[in-house]
Design a binder for these strands. Sequence first.
DNA 1: CTAGGTGCAAATAATTTGCAGAGGC
DNA 2: GCCTCTGCAAATTATTTGCACCTAG
Lengths: 325, 325
Amino acid sequence: MQSTSAFLDSLRPAGSKRSGKRDLIVNVFLRQEGHLTADDLYDLIRKEDQKISRATVYRTLQWMEEAGIARKVDFGEGRFRFEHSYRHPRHFHLICKTCNRSFEFLSSDIEALLEEVASARNFTPRQSILQIHGTCEACRTGRAPAVEGGTTELLFARDALRIAIATERSGLEFYSRAARLTKDARGRRVFERLSDEEQEHLGKLEARYKELLAQDPLLESRPTFLFFKGAANGLFAAGAEQLAKGVDDRQALMIGIRCERASHRFFKRYGDRFEDSEGKQIFLEFATEEREHLELLIREYRALVERQRRRPGGRRKTRPEQPTA
Amino acid sequence: MQSTSAFLDSLRPAGSKRSGKRDLIVNVFLRQEGHLTADDLYDLIRKEDQKISRATVYRTLQWMEEAGIARKVDFGEGRFRFEHSYRHPRHFHLICKTCNRSFEFLSSDIEALLEEVASARNFTPRQSILQIHGTCEACRTGRAPAVEGGTTELLFARDALRIAIATERSGLEFYSRAARLTKDARGRRVFERLSDEEQEHLGKLEARYKELLAQDPLLESRPTFLFFKGAANGLFAAGAEQLAKGVDDRQALMIGIRCERASHRFFKRYGDRFEDSEGKQIFLEFATEEREHLELLIREYRALVERQRRRPGGRRKTRPEQPTA
DNA sequence: CTAGGTGCAAATAATTTGCAGAGGC
DNA sequence: GCCTCTGCAAATTATTTGCACCTAG
């Protein structure tokens, strides 16, 4: 965590002064893992400096919120709790009413549905709060679970990386199959090129995944943080299946376009969520790469349609779909 | 609303006394539509009786919560609001940070995902809070929307009835098609019978839907309350499509079983949600009917497998699936 | 030297509680 | 008559603020 102080300096708003008290409070706060009440934090601070008052803790908490270091969360207890947002994406909560602990998760599926609901109601969403209240495993069974949660940053990186890898695998499958099936020579070359790129990128991602595992030996056995059904077999899996059923060159390109678009959107969404960390890099790089593929495919699609129009082949009932970025 | 008082009497817990003050507070509360703070309610009460104190309002609110008349909701404003739960299913909220109004919705899709998340984390969910904070249409565009929300009870009944009707339509399609395709005479008769039942039930549901519309002429144009993608074309739609692709008698029964089970679950889930109202009747009746169909199909399935086992036809690689309720 | 930052004590805001009297059953 | 309900005022809890003093830039 050596970059923490650099991060803090960068976030210090203009016209604010350094102060030993504040630094102490911020540091103690960032050292904690869970969701603290103002009083929890006050007690912790008091252990290191008897002379800090409650008011200062409250004021610093407010300052941290404005600075984007802390997020205020409300678990319906009649007082607020705070979680730090440094390398800690926005997420949802499971809240145990027995032990008052809370667990974090994210669901791409739910987030997509939330967007649909908001849009159906002509509502502009800014932030969503989702809490599942109930009883955790430990409180129900009376003994500690085999593996604890671990840090959110690592879990998030792990899950997104898994999705990225599955996507690359299915993309590789898709493009190499498409290259085999495509009759049009130019289109085939495009698919071959993309297949090579997916292959290369896949290698990189797998290396990153290994690095991640090295940081926490139990990482693979920790519970899921990011739920995303659509990506279980990769975002290209459905496309690859469609290819097997037989499609023409134009359709193959269109399927590729849809898959790349889904993939780009996914990585853009979650890349943006990271405040500042290695994870952000991975996802945004990925999103950019997918966007380039997408644009390449769209150009190819347009070119193919144009060539077919000039040299019409079989009859065609409807005008071919027009792709958009 | 003439059954309100009967409802209240039934909910009055043992060892509690009638009191004019309390009755007044409860009645004023139930007359309101939105989400009131304790103070909003106090102000309203004060208009009718100057001599009621804040403490009594708070105490009555607590009593109403215990009695199941009111639900405490927390929109993160630092104080609680209350909504009445009489004929008012649990739901989620869209909260406008500009005008502080809130809008209600429900999503079967999201609820299903929430259950999956909880189960993946070995968490026993008791209640979920879902709030989308943002800006409502009126605040964004500066003018009132064409049609307002209406009462939740009617909207819920409307949406669930639409889903029920779509389900019956697709069920009818499924069973009549299955009856045409089934070679086994006994199986065919089962499908014919179910087809007739769906037909009859469909008529009933459509009549109920018309009654609902009579209660609110704008009902059809009001925004969606209950979101459920899976049911857009009815819960049997996918099954009917599979039939078209060609299946044998046993597979047709199995598809029917799956569809009935999905349908039973859906109506059970939302029927249970209604505290007490006509809607509850509709859904629970429906759930019961679907359950009976389900059991009939399972019996038939077992009988068919048994007959086929005794008089083996073609070779079969795997043992046929065993259905469960 | 001056705009913040800090401690202390008092203020606020929502909600709860102790207590004595009022009123159902 | 007993037990619950009610009003009033005081208490409680989480959080904020006024003010005098302190300190970094």
